[in-house]
Simulated scan of single mutants.
Amino acid sequence: MSYNPHNEELDAIREGVRGLCRNFDAAYWRKVDETKGFPEAFVNALTEAGWLAAMIPEEFGGAGLGLAEASVILEEVNRCGGNSGTVHGQMYNMFTLLRHGSPEQKQTFLPKIAAGELRLQSMGVTEPTTGTDTTKIKTTAVRKGDKYYINGQKVWISRIQHSDLMILLARTTPLAEVARKTEGMSIFLIDLKYAMENGMRVQPIANMVNHETNELFFDNLEIPASCLIGEEGKGFRYILDGLNAERTLIAAECIGDGRWFIEKATNYARDREVFGRPIGKNQGVQFPIAQAHIDIEAADLMRWRACYEYDNGLPAGASANMAKYLAAEASWKAANVCLQTHGGFGFACEYDVERKFRETRLYQVAPISTNLILAYIAEHILELPRSF
């Protein structure tokens, strides 16, 4: 019950993405990191080549591919030394619109997203006082006639400055008035340019990985009722569809990072000579690299299981969470091994290890922390008492 990761179609995708990434070498990504910039040229090239429209159905101008193919695209970007964190939002944010949007919403937005005329890179869920306790969100959307009025605050919301649209989760029925805490939340498709001119304030958050992220403040933002996706009050369930895809895609990115670290460490250990011999001849150097390789390969198997389940309409929550956990752990171990293998040179920006080291560390924390995944598995798979 899995995909063959080396079939002709997937291999063709790998070669295509690698070919594009050759135009964006280490020096390009180093410069973006140094200047705290956004890789606009790279994102445009990936869009124009159709890779970011991979999962949009053909009837709307996309390629109609599945999660498996999308995961390969993001994996290869990271494996080539790039950072998929600048584009991955469009992949997994798409699921909410694809699965729950109205025919009119799909027809209006999907062709423009596929053509690169619009970007759907942002999702507004997390809040400062609730974190991963999503059911406690305080941002509200109150309906009055054919309008909703949004008030509240979001944090760690990515790529607002380089996106046209955002998926927003807000509470439409007070928590005290619902039978289950997962009820009463709704999702909206927000026009960001309009929002920033009519009641949404954006405060960028400087951070260690040059990940464009922000705090958002809503003050009576008025939006048309047509911005609602699906039925009012069912937004939490809708969001979960996208989150399982998100976790699987992040796993693929981590696997790409891990393979980059392992290749970088292996090449350096093979070439670097100390005491008249390559350092890779020493078991103290080669064994940690070998172990990192094993961990990445094991995580990759769970990634393919999650892709298979998702693409075939099977429950994918457990596999998606486990894939993200295993891949994030494996990529972080590979990063440490790579840095240790390079010694002092691992801290030099020109080797790119320290940049990728910082980037892959993020996935221990986001988009879901490793501890929350463990809590999910304990409760839902092992049937242990809920811990929170």
Rank of each mutant, 00 (worst) to 15 (best):
V274F: 13
A252G: 11
G242W: 07
E76T: 11
L240R: 10
K144V: 14
P385I: 12
Y3M: 04
L118H: 04
G16A: 04
R386D: 14
N336S: 05
S122N: 07
R180S: 13
N282A: 13
I239N: 10
A45E: 15
T129W: 05
F347G: 04
G317W: 04
M55W: 00
Y28M: 03
A195D: 06
L384F: 14
P367E: 06
D295N: 11
L110T: 07
H100P: 00
A323I: 07
A245R: 04
A318T: 14
N210D: 13
S158T: 15
A348H: 08
T140G: 02
M196K: 12
I239T: 08
T47M: 08
A323E: 05
N4W: 01
T134H: 11
A327Q: 06
I137V: 13
S226E: 15
L384W: 15
K234T: 12
A252N: 08
Q90V: 06
Y268G: 00
G62F: 04
I373R: 03
I255Q: 01
A327I: 05
L192S: 09
V353E: 03
R14L: 02
S71V: 02
I160V: 15
S331I: 01
M123G: 05
P5K: 08
R386W: 10
A375P: 00
Y268S: 00
T129M: 10
D164R: 00
T140M: 01
K324D: 05
E263P: 01
E359Y: 11
V337L: 03
F275K: 03
R237M: 08
K138V: 07
